[in-house]
Nucleic acid binder design. Structure first.
Lengths: 278, 278
DNA sequence: CGTGCCAGGTGCCAT
DNA sequence: ATGGCACTTGGCACG
């Protein structure tokens, strides 16, 4: 049996099922009305409502509200999720609990260290529970990444500029990594920063950091010359597009923008994915 | 009935349940062996394996493998998820499908525009399905955010430096937003960038951008003076910590680092959360 | 709607 | 472990 479902389990059943699932390395899904609490890098509280809880064998824990892409609360893998029975009432403070005979509720507590943090979900009403003995050996294969864009540029530096010669890829410098260090047709050094998406001000920042570094570090060994020699380093920001703010920032700082989109589909045999389009 | 569970539903049942759930604005969870495919900002493929699929009424769609915090495939809200029956076989290419009498499989297709992208999950074997008519009016309340750190600094500018006076919060400039614009005890202008976490090179970049901008924009109206007057602007990066690289970058560019952690727990009545510590 | 920027960012890979 | 950086980043706030 790959899955095992419980309908409206009581707290004890939730705890039992959760313990068994974690013991056996199964995934657990619970549909429930619950409260949530997080304490760690920040802290927060989520009042009662209907959510889906997911616990994975690697310690991952997710609390999903009915809307939104991100879990409202979560714990990355590496820690542990421990189920336990607790007194009813709000997670907020014990003061609200008046009498001692409140109904017991199931609690899922996810913890980890480094950073030290915890998520607690108090299951006020479990509507459904599913245990899933999942087995998955596949891993996601992606293409169209910036790494591929780098390869494409390295193979076809002329798409950036005629006569450009790539000297080094991922050059490490005192302040960070330059995507490409190159020289133009006249031998002038060129620092290249590549972005797969529309360029932002932070991307401009990066390029500016690398270029000003280069100016410094290469100018200093000259010694004698005052602000000598090598203002002649160029900076290229390569991206499919850029906002006007970014273009102006580049211009004002004597940096250049190279528009490059649809890499890999230009020169080579392209027009392939168009068939499954609609 | 808040939840409705199906055990090992056949493809037709999956489609029916999915249609009904989407029509009624319910959340859908499916435990299944499936393939995944994404096409949009990049493209990618995920071979067969056991995963949990979650579809929300707002168009959110998630594919979760047995490990990892992030869904392996997903679609943010705003689009639509549409269920449909399709021929069996790999999503990879129609060429692999030899005969026409393959078993039909249920497919969940999530799409949106702007950006145009789609995720397709081909459900090869549905182990379990749960429909959840969830109702959740609560929203997450968080504290310890950078916004609160800003408030704290605005109330207690002396924690940054004795005699510092905050002039403006969130000042907009030509290239972006300065967290604080201030003046020190001598009236010298100070640009302040605040980070809640360990400072990174990008954070240094931001501060550097704002400072050099200030130097420019204030120097130009002076007109006559050659590189006149106002090199005298200071830049402060405020964060709980910073790597050595960042500290050096700051030093080399005549910017300053102010270590500030545990904001709000210093001056005020603190030592509160320590009780629920273990 | 785009632009800028924070996020409990997360994940990957390097030293 | 720490650091630098991309990410189908997502999300919010503001012009």
């Amino acid at each position: 049996m790959v899955v095992e479902q419980l309908d409206a389990p009581d707290p004890e059943e939730v705890i039992e099922a959760a313990k068994a699932a974690f013991r056996d390395g199964a995934m657990l899904t619970v549909q429930a009305r619950c409260e949530g609490e997080y304490e760690g890098r920040t802290s927060g509280y989520l009042g009662p409502g209907d959510r889906i809880l997911v616990a994975k064998p690697d310690g991952t824990f997710l609390v999903h509200q009915p809307t939104g892409h991100k879990p409202v609360n979560w714990m990355p893998g590496g820690g542990t999720v421990s189920p336990r029975l607790s007194e009813g009432g709000a997670a907020r403070g014990a003061a609200e609990e008046s009498s001692g005979d409140e109904p017991r509720v199931a609690v899922l507590l996810a913890r980890r260290t480094n950073p030290s943090e915890r998520v607690e979900a108090r299951i006020l009403d479990a509507h459904g529970l599913t245990r899933f003995d999942a087995s998955d050996g596949a891993s996601y294969e992606e293409s169209g990444t910036e790494a591929e864009m780098h390869e494409y540029i390295e193979q076809n530096p002329a798409v950036l500029e005629e006569g450009l010669r790539i000297v080094e890829h991922e050059r490490e410098t005192k302040y960070g990594f330059i995507d490409f260090f190159a020289r133009d047709a006249d031998g002038v050094p060129v620092v290249v920063e590549v972005k797969r998406i529309q360029a932002t001000l932070n991307h401009f920042d990066q390029l500016q950091r690398y270029v000003s570094l280069y100016e410094e570090s290469e100018a200093s060994p000259r010694g004698g010359g005052v602000t000598a020699g090598n203002e002649e380093v160029r900076g290229l920001l390569v991206a499919p597009s850029a906002s006007e703010r970014v273009r102006r920032a580049l211009r004002d700082n004597d940096l250049e923008f190279v528009e490059l989109g649809e890499f890999g589909t230009d020169a080579k045999g392209a027009t392939e994915a168009k068939l499954t389009d609609f």
